[in-house]
Nucleic acid binder design. Structure first.
Lengths: 118, 118
DNA sequence: CCTAATATGTCAAAAATAAGACATATTGTA
DNA sequence: TACAATATGTCTTATTTTTGACATATTAGG
């Protein structure tokens, strides 16, 4: 019996990777969304679920947004929509810089796939 | 040196990003190193310091390596070098699959920079 | 001989994170 | 009039992760 050994379909770890990136780089994920289009917390939650299938807990997101503002990565303005008040965030130049640094590093990592000896 | 400081240098978050990636994707970093060339723990520590300027604590690395082996991402063989025994690790097909999944996701992220509406 | 370097391992305590409840207010809809 | 959805916030309690110490053994070099 040749080749009986499991020729399993190659495992896909994508889901796992997406989850890990979302957990550990949630700030950058959020900055990217805000960069694309100014947004408020509730919309970020809905958007993230649609785009990535990830349910953000609001108890995690709102403190994060406030922290990002305090650090100067985003700025917010309150926008009344009916009787509700939305806190609409937009990215700052500093925030853009952080996102860019992240992407620069990703590119670097991809290019270095062939490292042998240094 | 004329007018060197007239323009604010854009902040570079590279160091911070490298640290975060190393902390959260240490397993993949290690797998990459092992994929390039079979290696033992101590060498990984030295290599990582040279390549990325990151000092891994051996108290964190060795349990990680054992875990990676238990999960089938690497396999090891003991190689005597003088009177010392090195546990040389090599990557498995499953390990390669994980690294590939990671890189696929990075590529995907870079391509999606221009998302507007989905 | 002694110290630094090589080499691998465990484990408890400390620190950081995450989950989920508590809190409040408006609007749309059945 | 309820209930679901929109909207933002805090805070305590798990859970997880990290730090750093304890442990052991060999080799190289001053």
């Amino acid at each position: 019996m040749a080749g009986v050994e499991s020729e399993k379909l190659p495992q896909n770890f994508r889901k796992e990777i997406v989850q890990r990136v979302s957990r550990n780089f949630l700030d950058i994920l959020v900055l990217r969304l805000i960069q694309t289009e100014p947004m408020w917390g509730y919309k970020i939650i809905k958007k993230t679920e649609k785009l990535f299938g990830i349910k953000l807990r609001h108890g995690a997101l709102y403190p994060l947004l406030n922290q990002l503002e305090k650090k100067g990565f985003v700025r917010s303005r309150k926008v009344a929509k009916g009787g509700r008040v939305r806190k609409v965030y937009e990215i700052t130049p500093k925030g853009i810089q952080l996102v860019d640094s992240y992407y620069d590093f990703l590119r670097e990592q991809l290019q270095r796939l062939d490292i042998k000896e240094v």
